[in-house]
C-alpha cells in the first residue's frame, strides 16, 4: 500500500521544467527526507503531494487514487488526512493560537469545544501552552514553526508533510521540532520533510530509519552514504 505515489511526474513553470521524471512511493509509517539546494523544487514536490499543484506530466496518486479523479471537495477531505507544515507557517492572524491550531477541526465541522482537552495537550506537547491566547504575529519564528506542527497533527492525519520546518529556528529548536516529528513517526504517521539542513538529517538518522532523497538536476535520487 502507498499513501502517496508519484510516477514519472514532471512539473513545468514559466516555460521551464522544474521537476522531471520523478517517481516516489511513500509507504504508511515511513520517514523520508527530501533534500537539495534552494530552488531545486522541494516545495513544489510537496505541493504535488498534497494536490496544491497538478503535474504537467506523469501521475500522482494519493491514498491509492489518481489525483485527476479528485474533485475540489475530495481534495479538501484528503487534506484533512494530511498535515502540512508550510514554509511560511500560514496562520489566521486575527485568531488566537489555540483557535488556529483547532482550525482543521473547525473546518471539518468537528466540535471544537469537545476537543479543548486535546488542543491543550497538543499545546503542551509543542511547548506553547502559555501562548494559547496569543495572536500569531506576536510569536517568534520557532514558536510559529511549532504551532504549525501542532496544527498539522491536530486531526491525527495519516501523513505529515513539512516544508523546511527548521528553516527559521536555532539549532536547539530545530532538534526539538525533529524530536516531535520522530515521535509522530513512531505513532505510525508517514513523514516527508523537505529540508536543506544536512545536520538535521544526520541527527534524525540516528533516531529513526529515515530514507533521504535528493533533488538534483530536476530529478529525484536516493542520497548517498555521506548522509
Amino acid at each position: 500500500m502507498r499513501v502517496i505515489e508519484l510516477e514519472n511526474v514532471a512539473y513545468s513553470y514559466g516555460g521551464g521544467e522544474l521537476l522531471s521524471d520523478i517517481s516516489l512511493r511513500l509507504a504508511p509509517g515511513s520517514f523520508h527526507f527530501l533534500t537539495g539546494p534552494s530552488g531545486a523544487g522541494k516545495s513544489t514536490l510537496l505541493k504535488l503531494c498534497y494536490l496544491e499543484l497538478a503535474p504537467t506530466a506523469g501521475r500522482v496518486q494519493l491514498f491509492e487514487r489518481p489525483s485527476e479523479g479528485y474533485s475540489r471537495d475530495e481534495v479538501a477531505r484528503a487534506r484533512q488526512r494530511i498535515g502540512v507544515v508550510h514554509q511560511d507557517c500560514q496562520f489566521l492572524d486575527h485568531l488566537p493560537l489555540a483557535e488556529n491550531i483547532a482550525l482543521p477541526l473547525t473546518v471539518a465541522g468537528r466540535d471544537v469545544e469537545a476537543e479543548r482537552g486535546n488542543i491543550a495537550e497538543l499545546l503542551r506537547w509543542v511547548g506553547l501552552e502559555a501562548h494559547a491566547d496569543a495572536l500569531p504575529p506576536s510569536l517568534s519564528g520557532g514558536e510559529r514553526q511549532r504551532a504549525a506542527l501542532a496544527r498539522a497533527v491536530v486531526m491525527s492525519p495519516d501523513i505529515v508533510l513539512a516544508d523546511e520546518p527548521t528553516g527559521n529556528v536555532d539549532w536547539e529548536m530545530g532538534q526539538r521540532l525533529l524530536q516531535l516529528l520522530v515521535e509522530l513517526n513512531k505513532m505510525g504517521k508517514t513523514i516527508l520533510v523537505a529540508t536543506h539542513d544536512l545536520t538535521l538529517i544526520r541527527t534524525a538518522k540516528s533516531k529513526v530509519a529515515a530514507r533521504v532523497l535528493r533533488i538534483s538536476k530536476r530529478r529525484l535520487q536516493l542520497a548517498g552514504a555521506d548522509l
Binding site: E52, R72, D73, A76, R77, A78, R79, Q80, V84, H86, Q90, F91, L92, L103, P104, V107, A108, G109, R151, M155
Partner: peptide, 11 residues
C-alpha cells in the same frame, strides 16, 4: 490557509 487545512469551498 483554509484550503490548506482542508476547508471545502462551500465552507
Amino acid at each position: 490557509t483554509l484550503r490548506l487545512v482542508g476547508a471545502r469551498d462551500v465552507y
